[in-house]
Design a protein around this nucleic acid. Sequence first.
DNA 1: TTCTTACATTGTAATTGTTATAATTAATTT
DNA 2: AAATTAATTATAACAATTACAATGTAAGAA
Lengths: 143, 143
Amino acid sequence: MNPLKEALDTLKDTGVRITPQRHAILEYLINSMSHPTADDIYKALEGKFPNMSVATVYNNLRVFREVGLVKELTFGDASSRFDFVTSHHYHVICEKCGKIVDFLYPGLDEVEHLASHVTGFKVENHRMEIYGSCPECASKEVH
Amino acid sequence: MNPLKEALDTLKDTGVRITPQRHAILEYLINSMSHPTADDIYKALEGKFPNMSVATVYNNLRVFREVGLVKELTFGDASSRFDFVTSHHYHVICEKCGKIVDFLYPGLDEVEHLASHVTGFKVENHRMEIYGSCPECASKEVH
DNA sequence: TTCTTACATTGTAATTGTTATAATTAATTT
DNA sequence: AAATTAATTATAACAATTACAATGTAAGAA
Ligand SMILES: [Mn+2]
Ligand SMILES: [Mn+2]
Ligand SMILES: [Zn+2]
Ligand SMILES: [Zn+2]
């Protein structure tokens, strides 16, 4: 089944109304294959929805996050980015141009276990990102 | 040698003037043994420096970051936290009360290597945090 | 010392991403 | 259809941070 249809089913199951705006935001998240900001989405859809409020984008991204359809990525400096949730993965980020690349890695269970053991925390999850220069930016560096 | 003295030497070596405000901010960062926000520092020092501007705190934290004395920690939602740099470590964070605990773990070199291999990035560093409930909050949960 | 210049601090305004609020519109239930 | 509930819109508010201009301070040259 295609991911959009599946996402819409999730909304239906959790009693969240499927509005044209929500449909469009989901569709954009899935098709863009990137990690857009709320503003990216807002701008991308202003052709189709000239009257949509930026608050609607934020509201709906929060709704999607709450039902587990999207993951919010927060990289310190700038604004949040949103990732349509497929399988669990990490991100490799270019510090020069900001490019974000998905990166699969088998879960770091051992780290979570050790952290729990050492600190006494009930560990739920973790985040990890890898930073560096993408091939394009790295090649520009050496000139 | 004590860390404050060492930090002041670093400033001297890099040609950064040691002002009373800078001295006090560094001292607070080292002695508090925590991960304060800029505002925490500002409030903690307003007794000693009633006229210090919040801009001064931000300016100097940036200076300290640039010369490698402090690390800025950005956890999405709230404001940045600042960590006086000692040895490399990770953080375990309570999602209930916000407590932050240092956590030592041998470097995840393997992850960096694989990421570099798979994406072609020139990998520089990574970040990782572990999330869960601290012992106090976890015990409150089960009631 | 006095003059000069560079750096630092202060107070405040501006900026940015995000959220809150109230009014309006749309969808669902009765 | 009427009533109820949820969603959207427009705009104001907010909080963290930065920019800016004016003032203050310290080191170096004369
Ligand atoms: Mn991703
Ligand atoms: Mn720490
Ligand atoms: Zn790049
Ligand atoms: Zn806690």
